[in-house]
Design a protein around this nucleic acid. Structure first.
Length: 269
DNA sequence: TAGAAATGTTTAG
DNA sequence: TAAACCTTTCTAT
């Protein structure tokens, strides 16, 4: 679920459902009890995402959430279900129609209240986010072009680029026929410009569709109707299967503690 | 249907 | 470097 496109969607949804009205904030699990007490009953100003981070501003205090690997939000209308299990945080509000809306947060890595200044420090550590207008790809290239780290690792570094995760990493490298082990300083400006433009396109499509679809075939099919998407990816999680373009077996190896997938022929060193 | 792996980061050792 | 987080998705049976 959570690469940048997921957080972008969540921010938009929460903003539409809760912003401009008071929110009843609780922590049935108790782990966010102090933060919930601080925010409870206050008016939510806006919800925004930056990379994989989510910020909900209540006046001078902001709720900062990072979903990590298995954090999840569940949202609904009407009366919320009886809290059960590890329910970190619940929001309840009147909703746009006054019928009541709620959202439940579970499993997040980060759920904390920050001052404006602290929000600034979190943002200062993030590279440009392809989903943000006015994001500057040159800032990422400045880091990439003087790095001796493999491009496959740099793409996962949120200080270089914000919002890209393991799926977009594998797929963008494949689409541009870049070997994941190529060093950052050996990626030229034209190649980076093309990858950035493609990330903007793919991540926007991810926001629209609610999932990561990177193959042209699946995109064409998606336009005709909500068919099954068994071929949504070129290489991600396709270890040992034939490459969709050349038929060579897709390879996998750990890089930055995550499984990396690539075609050794289409993405030759 | 059950079990393993996972779209990610922080914290402890 | 390893564990924690404790849900969802994928794969094998």
């Amino acid at each position: 679920m959570p690469e940048g496109h997921t957080l972008f969607r969540l921010a938009r949804e929460q903003d539409e459902l809760f912003a401009g009205r008071p929110v009843h904030v609780t922590s049935p699990q108790g782990r966010f009890a102090a933060g919930a007490a601080l925010l409870d009953g206050r008016v939510l100003d806006e919800v925004t995402s930056y990379g994989k981070h989510l910020f909900a501003r209540f006046g001078g205090d902001s709720l900062h959430v990072h979903l990590g690997l298995y954090g999840t939000y569940t949202t609904g209308t009407g009366t919320p279900p009886e809290p059960k299990g590890a329910l970190r945080m619940r929001w309840e509000g009147p909703g746009p129609d006054g019928d009541g809306v709620w959202t439940d947060l579970r499993g997040a890595t980060v759920c904390e209240v920050l001052t404006e200044h602290e929000v600034g420090s979190v943002l200062a550590r993030l590279g440009p986010d392809p989903l943000r207008r006015r994001a500057d790809p040159g800032r990422a290239f400045a880091r990439i072009s003087r790095s001796r780290t493999p491009i496959g690792a740099l793409l996962m570094d949120q200080e270089v680029l914000a919002g890209v995760g393991n799926v977009y990493r594998a797929e963008i490298l494949f689409r541009h026929q870049v070997n994941p082990f190529r060093l950052g300083r050996d990626v030229d400006a034209d190649c980076w410009a093309a990858m950035w433009a493609d990330l903007v396109k793919l991540m926007r499509a991810g926001v629209r569709e609610g999932r990561i679809v990177t193959t042209e075939r699946a995109h064409r099919r998606r336009k005709r109707g909500p068919a099954e998407l068994a071929d949504a990816h070129y290489v991600y999680r396709r270890t040992g299967l034939p490459c969709r373009l050349c038929g060579t077996e897709v390879r996998t190896q750990e890089m930055v503690g995550r499984n990396l997938y690539w075609c050794p022929v289409c993405q030759a060193a």
